[in-house]
Design a protein around this nucleic acid. Structure first.
Lengths: 185, 185
DNA sequence: GTCTATATCAAGATAGAC
DNA sequence: GTCTATCTTGATATAGAC
């Protein structure tokens, strides 16, 4: 293995991809270390445990969303429709990235019930997302309707990610994208 | 399906619940054996491996759906709306059962990408479901629309299962149920 | 058909040299 | 900060007695 100088941020970015593609339980510390170009022993210099590693990954996803994505909903310099499009595209970039589906949905479904550790972060991710969507919809719909549309968008999006993955076909996701955008003038 | 359950089938039923609640990778053969009231060693009398165990579980879900649930779409003795309601309720019973979300979605998201073993069965489950929904919708909508409505229903349903799980609140699922039924006169 | 015992391996994690 | 070596545990799976 070549000697690679790395840092905590780079490790988190790499780990995000490994976790998203392999899942939490099916990813070993060896897998993570190897993906980072480190020996397993070296890896513990950065993170005490696999659990803390994943927590750091999800925390970074949430803070990135909070800093860069959810505020799009408040950007009144662009049209409602453009805000919605920009938000959806940005969500896709951060949560889907390359392959493996959505890190938040994957982790939710995999750890729900038994592990309560990631729950708050995952809830904050989905609540923030839904909230941002609702803000955008509320510019053209009454409160009850925009809340429902926001919920529907999140649910359809995650369902579409699953079906796209399963069938190796992006069409489901693209369709949801188009349908969602069509809800705004 | 036979009227009298074999021992193997009881194991499959128990394993389904354990897998759905703990996930595939986070369930050990010990967990399964214990849930069945067997020693780990005894468990291998019935199934050669964990993988074959899960395959049997998913196969049984699919065959139950094929035998008892999807045909509801063809039952012209009840109204369109009642068929839709009966189908959705039956899907819920088989895939959700108690707690832990949807076995098909959980397994899809957890094993997608790395494991190709369960893929065909999972695809058949979702395709059969979508197909049954489309049949029902097609009695009141044109082909393109009913296909889209069927896709949307599956996606929203799975998204709702996730959010309901995450927030320990059935409301998301109930809302989808009501919204879906409202699509039929 | 169920048990106990065990083989084998990989996982998470730590210690200490450099 | 990275390495090698190691500890401990728990996982899958098998063997063979009853």
């Amino acid at each position: 293995m070549p000697l690679i100088k790395t840092n905590k941020e780079e490790i988190i970015d790499t780990a995000l991809n490994v976790f998203r593609e392999n899942g939490y339980y099916n990813t070993s510390m060896s897998d993570l270390a190897k993906a980072c170009g480190l020996q397993k022993g070296s890896f513990y210099h950065y993170f005490d445990s696999k659990e803390k590693m994943m927590s750091a990954v999800l925390d970074k996803v949430l803070s990135t969303l909070n800093a860069e994505v959810f505020p799009i909903a408040d950007d009144m310099s662009i049209s409602d429709r453009d805000r919605l499009q920009k938000l959806m595209l940005s969500i896709g970039e951060i949560m889907l990235q390359k392959s493996g589906g959505c890190i938040a949905a994957n982790t939710s479904l995999e750890t729900n019930g038994q592990s309560v550790i990631f729950r708050d972060t995952l809830k904050a991710i989905f609540d923030g997302w839904q909230n941002a969507l609702q803000k955008i919809f509320s510019s053209q719909y009454p409160e009850g309707t925009s809340k429902r549309l926001a919920e529907q968008t999140v649910m359809e999006f995650e369902g579409a990610v699953m079906l796209s993955q399963l069938h190796s076909n992006d069409q489901y996701l693209k369709d949801v994208f188009v349908r969602t955008l069509a809800k705004m003038k």
